[in-house]
Simulated assay, not measured.
Amino acid sequence: MSEKSWDRVPIDAQSIDAPLSRAAVFLVLTVPEGDAALGKVCATLDGLADLVKTVGFRDLGARLSCIVGIGSALWDRLRLGRRPLELKPFAPIRGARHDAPATPGDLLFHIRAERADFCFEFERLLLDGLGDAATVADEVCGFRYFDARDLLGFVDGTANPTGPDLPASALVGGEDEEFRGGSYVVVQKYLHDLGAWGRVPAPEQEAIIGRTKLDNVELDDDDAPRKSHKTLATIVDEQGAEHDILRDNMPFGRPGRREFGTYFIGYSRRLWVIEKMLQRMYVGEPAGAYDRLLDFSTPETGTTFFAPSRPTLEALVEAAQARIKGGG
Rank of each mutant, 00 (worst) to 15 (best):
149 R>S: 01
149 R>Y: 02
149 R>H: 02
149 R>D: 08
149 R>V: 02
150 D>K: 06
150 D>W: 05
150 D>P: 01
150 D>I: 09
151 L>P: 04
151 L>G: 00
151 L>R: 01
151 L>Q: 02
152 L>S: 07
152 L>W: 00
152 L>G: 05
153 G>T: 01
153 G>D: 05
154 F>C: 09
154 F>V: 02
155 V>E: 06
155 V>D: 05
155 V>K: 08
156 D>E: 12
156 D>A: 03
156 D>Y: 02
156 D>K: 04
156 D>V: 02
157 G>S: 03
157 G>R: 03
157 G>P: 03
158 T>G: 07
158 T>V: 05
158 T>D: 00
158 T>K: 05
158 T>E: 07
159 A>T: 12
159 A>K: 09
160 N>T: 05
160 N>G: 02
161 P>R: 01
161 P>T: 08
161 P>Y: 00
163 G>P: 14
164 P>W: 08
166 L>P: 14
167 P>L: 08
167 P>D: 09
167 P>H: 05
167 P>Y: 02
168 A>V: 14
169 S>F: 00
169 S>E: 00
170 A>G: 02
171 L>D: 02
171 L>G: 04
171 L>W: 06
171 L>R: 13
171 L>H: 13
172 V>A: 08
172 V>W: 04
173 G>N: 07
173 G>K: 01
174 G>E: 14
174 G>C: 03
175 E>K: 11
175 E>D: 13
175 E>W: 13
175 E>L: 09
175 E>S: 13
176 D>I: 07
176 D>N: 04
176 D>S: 04
177 E>M: 14
177 E>W: 12
178 E>M: 11
178 E>V: 06
178 E>L: 12
178 E>S: 08
179 F>Q: 00
180 R>Q: 13
180 R>E: 12
180 R>N: 07
180 R>F: 04
180 R>S: 11
181 G>D: 05
181 G>Y: 04
181 G>T: 08
181 G>V: 06
182 G>R: 04
182 G>E: 05
182 G>Q: 12
182 G>N: 13
183 S>E: 10
184 Y>F: 04
185 V>C: 01
185 V>K: 04
186 V>Q: 02
186 V>Y: 00
186 V>G: 04
187 V>H: 15
187 V>R: 14
187 V>N: 14
187 V>K: 13
188 Q>G: 09
188 Q>R: 11
188 Q>E: 04
189 K>R: 15
189 K>H: 06
189 K>T: 09
190 Y>S: 12
190 Y>Q: 13
190 Y>I: 14
191 L>P: 00
191 L>W: 10
192 H>C: 11
192 H>N: 13
192 H>V: 11
193 D>C: 07
193 D>Y: 09
193 D>V: 06
193 D>L: 12
194 L>S: 02
194 L>P: 06
194 L>V: 06
195 G>P: 14
195 G>I: 15
195 G>K: 15
196 A>W: 11
196 A>M: 14
196 A>L: 13
198 G>M: 01
198 G>P: 11
198 G>Y: 01
198 G>F: 10
199 R>C: 08
200 V>R: 11
200 V>Y: 10
200 V>W: 00
200 V>C: 13
201 P>N: 01
201 P>Y: 09
